[in-house]
Design a protein around this nucleic acid. Sequence first.
RNA 1: GGGGGAUUAGCUCAGUUGGUUAGAGCGUUUGCAUGACACGCAAGAGGUCACUGGUUCGAACCCAGUAUCUCCCACCA
Length: 919
Amino acid sequence: MIEVSYSPADLERKWYEKWLENDLFTRKISKEKSSYTILIPPPNVTGILHMGHILNNTLQDVLIRRARQKNRSTFWIPGTDHAGISLQIKVEKELAKEGKTRRDIGRETFLERAKNWRDHNGNIILEQLKKLGVSCDWSAVKHTLDPDYSRAVLSFFVELYRQGYIYKGLKFINWCPVSMTALSDEEVFMQQQNSILYYVKYEIVERPGEFLVVATTRPETIMGDVAVAVHPSDERYRSLIGLHCWRPIVRESIPIVADEVILRDFGTGVLKVTPAHDPIDFEIGQRHGLATISVIDRDGRLNASAGPEFQGMDRMEARREVGEYLRANDLLLREEAYVNNVGFSERAGVPIEPMLSEQWFLKYPCVEEAKMAIRKGMIHFRPERWEKTYMHWLDHIKDWCISRQLWWGHRIPVWYRKGVDRKDPQNWHVSVEGPGDPENWEQDEDVLDTWFSSAIWPLGTLGWPDREAMERMGFDYFYPTADLVTGPDIIFFWVARMIMAGLHLLDGGENSSQNRKNIPQNTGSQGKTTLSVEEIQRRIPFRNVYFTGIIRDHLGRKMSKSLGNSPDPLELIGKYGADGVRLGLLSMAPNGQDILFSEDRLAQGKRLCTKLWNSFRFRQRNGMEGDHHSLEAIIGRIGVGALEVEDRAILGKLLITVKEFEKAMDGYEFNRAVQILYAFFWNHYCDWYIEISKSRIDATVLAIHDLILRQLLLLFHPFIPFVTEELWQDHGFGTKFLWDELLESGDQLEKYFEKFNLKGVGRLIEEIEFVQELIVTARGMKAQYGLSSNRDVQFYFKAEAEGEAIIRRHIKSIKHLLGTKHFEQTDGTLQLPANVMALGSLYIHTANLDIEGERKRLRQEIEHLERLIEINRKKLHNENFLVRAPGEVVEGVRRLLSENIGKKENLEGILMKLSLIES
RNA sequence: GGGGGAUUAGCUCAGUUGGUUAGAGCGUUUGCAUGACACGCAAGAGGUCACUGGUUCGAACCCAGUAUCUCCCACCA
């Protein structure tokens, strides 16, 4: 027997321990089953558990457990991400407190500290996830800086390098002056700024006293100007092209050039050309053979080229100071407020500095194949609309800057021969192992973008590229993975890159070398794919990507640490139980829409668990005789001859529910699936069937309860694994863990139910609905006359055609549910308050009859029916409707019309009878 | 500038192929210690489905436009 009250904390702890002890989650390769793999989106070791993780991992757990119930061999691969820049910042902050920088302690000591930090904090988040009940295979846990995974990352680099996809180049990149590293385009977000547009006067050398006016938001870069540019056909300036003007600060003569890219209608139509600090200017500089003068250093401060007044100043300070200087020296025509967009570093939150820098770049491989995988439906996105976003990105893809000037991460596996020209690739050594004579080489100082290592997550976690490790992990069996659950915010960062990496690298097994030959030096060439559809199919890292919504607070704001609006998931689990949190979150959540978080829904989740618990208490109080161990055994206890209409109706309803549930789950509509179960369990089973069965509990009825409860536990299990496990074991439904039980499909269940003769169950359900209508109406009448719901009241019923038989069949239940001993049939129309329904007219006996009130109510009721009848008639008089609408719809309206007319006539009769009293 | 999403009850949201009189939870009103459950039961109130047109026998749903909110991409210096 279960405890009196449901308390999640203890039982959740108990079951998770037992699950682990019994090694349930460890992958098992079994030839007769198909595999089902999920790859966890590895949380950052620096991250703290937030609601997004909870949603994400609940979904994955639901999918895994559901796949398990369908007899698939499941494997959920957990792990963590080393979080390059983020962890480095954390350790540097610690150092700063001691008044040190990373350079003070040196690379090796720094890395020791970083590892320490990770080892102490990095697994917290996985431990927290266990509280949620996640069924990850913990024997397979992987970290992106594990030695084997690191080798995989380096292999990835080396292979791409050898094939020409990775190159070193001098290009404009996004420089973060705080983190002091290059960033990829994806790590920069644009933010609207209230800036000032400075109109600066550049005196024309050849025409002293005359000025060209340049509008700029970045006056601090004036010292880097090497020209001013105008549009070649701009009448205003045509005569000046070829002349020169004076650079206003660090005064020097610079040419006036013409270039097509200049926008005539922006500002004054004159652009200052600063090749070192703006990519467009750089291109102009290239076209006109101009020099490049850098005035801002890597730390965001102005250097010697900026002149002694400004040297050493921070760029933002310099902007104000230069403005001041221009104003003071009559070099400023005017300034105006201006709103523009500025790129910010995602991590450090400061404006990035466009900078010319030598970095490692990746030309993406298999771009066309990656598009094809989606277009041909080999990989499916849910919701589908994200496919468009993905395609758009791939259509405009640019080379990826993969080097970072950090220490924490995978160090670039490139060595330069000491004492010779570093720029010459002849003097490079690129390999996973490094050169055999390391004393003669220096390794590249930089590390790889963390996302570069994430790109091979599906491969590295399964042992790639080490054939032996792949064997051990079951690569051939478990790859490709099935469903990836992640947020749409990392569709470029991660999803797209994993697809390309998988497609490119996975030339697999025996014919690997042959396949590799087929990969060209450059797949960027328009629209051509070199992989066959079958080959793509085999290489893709996953078949479905489920994009969750982003969880927002009740005001619609993104949850963030700085706003402090993110609730602590562990606190919530303490309050509502992991089951309650899981169920609540799923019910409010994942239709792919953003989710406004509401704690109420979690409370609702817990309430359902409590209700489930209590329904078992009801069942168990009525004795536990009989065999519960299997569906067959339970069905065997049901006496088919003893089945009443309500029994067959609830079994039929269960069957319908299971089928609807399957459809919702197959379509990844989890909130709908939950809702379907919820409605069946609460409204049909608890509110109706349990109540109606109370008046006739016997062995058959108890067996029906067992059957329904058993299926409910199985159906609810993926969502609320803990409480269902507890109830399953306690009630003796099985000796194994619920995890190991298969769920009967709707079709299978239908076969089992054949002996119940559920053919035409629709009519049975309809009959029950008639009875429910009667009950609700009668209760409503009691309430209307201020009679408490459990008071014995006299009812009279005048039945319509089939009503009499139905009432007779259910009379015991009706009396029980109405709490009355007096429910009598009558033939005549009575002078009592009445309501009319499909089955007939129901009268309630009351001493204090309010005739006026009743008549008013009846008249309103009649008017309402008249309106409905009018609508019905109109439809039936419309020939187009009769011809074009499907027969059953027309039939429905006909039936409704006659029903409404019947009701109206009955009401009119009652009204007349009541009127007689007065006269 | 380009693209996506949203707009349904006081609040949060369902409503998947267009078909009777639009649903749920929370909140709210009223009644109830009735055999599991007051984290409950019962009965109610509450909606111009953003707006304007169109298609259709029939529109919350399809189409066009408008408004408001929101996200992503691009970046005009």
